[in-house]
């Protein structure tokens, strides 16, 4: 669907050159919700803005359905953009227009007639549950309502792709959830491919299928959300996971404070139904002390984390660990 190849974007500020996007390649599949997470300044916005060429890439190619976006002239690009909706952190609604006129705006740009526009706008208003706010102005809406107007407007042209640049970052956690579920519904019902920029792991966890982790203009890790939660390969990834509220804070548990061996187990939801730990205790001559545990609910499944202290015979412990590994549990020894 979207294929980004060796994309770079430099900003020149006088003599200084800042490489905001540094040779990034990635593929987004059709109908997928693809997350890009990174700290502020990582280059996420620059990257996503390159996808509809709001930012001109310095080098590299971007293909959308095999059309090379970087080779398009101005006019073809303008038409192509109608197939790529976009939402923003600060909504960017037209402040002097009603909710209705905001949603009608992209259709007016196409020169559609009033009846067509009216039909479509009313349908969209219903879809985002804002029919009662039809004649309100943006200043009279809550953040969540504003973003729903922005979403309705972004999908008015039936785009193939929806780009979200921190679309939930200005919202409180509950509103964030409702916006995410709206986006998920849009993906399900219209098959729109969604690229989500965020700095919040909660967003990735709730809605994304795959995620790329971005740092200093580069993508350091790309994987399914399940795998990232289960086995983050980079420090950045694990920092994002542990920055979530209610995840285990590895730092809080200092292995030096314990006599036994500390291990961190990660397992997917399906395994969670099996008494893997108690089986291991019974099978091997070890003692287990549970230090912390939690479960993260992902889109399709759950990822559980447990930190255990194992005491007993070294031999028995290492046997228990390999047993757990055979049970498809990811085991990390924390010492």
């Amino acid at each position: 669907m979207i294929s980004i190849q060796n994309l770079s974007k430099d900003f020149t500020n006088g003599k200084e050159i800042l490489t905001a996007v540094d040779n990034i390649s990635l593929n987004v599949n059709k109908g997928e919700i693809f997350g890009i997470i990174g700290l502020s300044g990582a280059g996420k916005s620059t990257l996503i803005r390159c996808i509809n060429r709001l930012e001109e890439p310095t080098s590299g190619k971007i293909f959308i359905d095999n059309v090379d976006l970087t080779s398009l002239d101005k006019e073809s690009l303008r038409l192509m953009r109608k197939e790529i909706g976009m939402i923003f952190q600060h909504f960017n609604l037209l402040s002097q227009k009603t909710v209705y006129d905001n949603i009608a705006f992209p259709l007016e740009l196409n020169g559609e007639n009033k009846d067509q526009i009216d039909k479509r706008v009313n349908l969209l208003l219903e879809y985002v549950e804002l029919t009662d706010k039809k004649y309100s102005y943006p200043s009279q809406l809550s953040g969540g309502q504003k973003q729903r107007v922005a979403i309705a407007r972004a999908i008015a042209n039936n785009p193939k792709i929806l780009l979200s640049d921190e679309g939930t970052s200005a919202l409180d956690p509950r509103t964030t959830k409702s916006i995410l579920s709206l986006l998920n519904r849009i993906r399900r019902e219209f098959g729109i491919t969604i690229v989500m920029i965020t700095h919040q792991m909660e967003v990735v966890k709730d809605i994304c299928d795959r995620v790329a982790i971005m740092e200093d203009g580069k993508i350091v890790e790309t994987n399914t959300v399940e795998s990232i939660f289960r086995e983050p390969k980079t420090k950045t990834a694990s920092t994002f996971i542990s920055s979530m509220s209610n995840t285990i804070e590895d730092e809080v548990i200092n292995p030096k404070d314990f006599n036994g061996i500390l291990i961190r187990l990660s397992y997917l939801g399906n395994d969670a139904n099996q008494p893997i730990v108690s089986k291991a205790i019974k099978q091997f001559d070890i003692n287990v002390n549970i230090l912390s545990g939690n479960i993260n609910k992902l889109q399709e499944t759950n990822v559980g984390h447990l930190i255990l202290e194992l005491t007993g015979d070294d031999d028995q412990i290492s046997k228990a660990i390999s047993h757990l590994r055979n049970e498809d549990v990811h085991v990390e020894v924390l010492q």
Binding site: R78, M86, N92
Partner: peptide, 18 residues
């Protein structure tokens, strides 16, 4: 006029006169 609004219009494929 908020730059973001102009940016959004561009992202929607608006022409300069529009």
């Amino acid at each position: 006029v908020d730059k973001g609004v102009i940016e959004f219009s561009l992202s929607m494929g608006a022409t300069v006169p529009q």
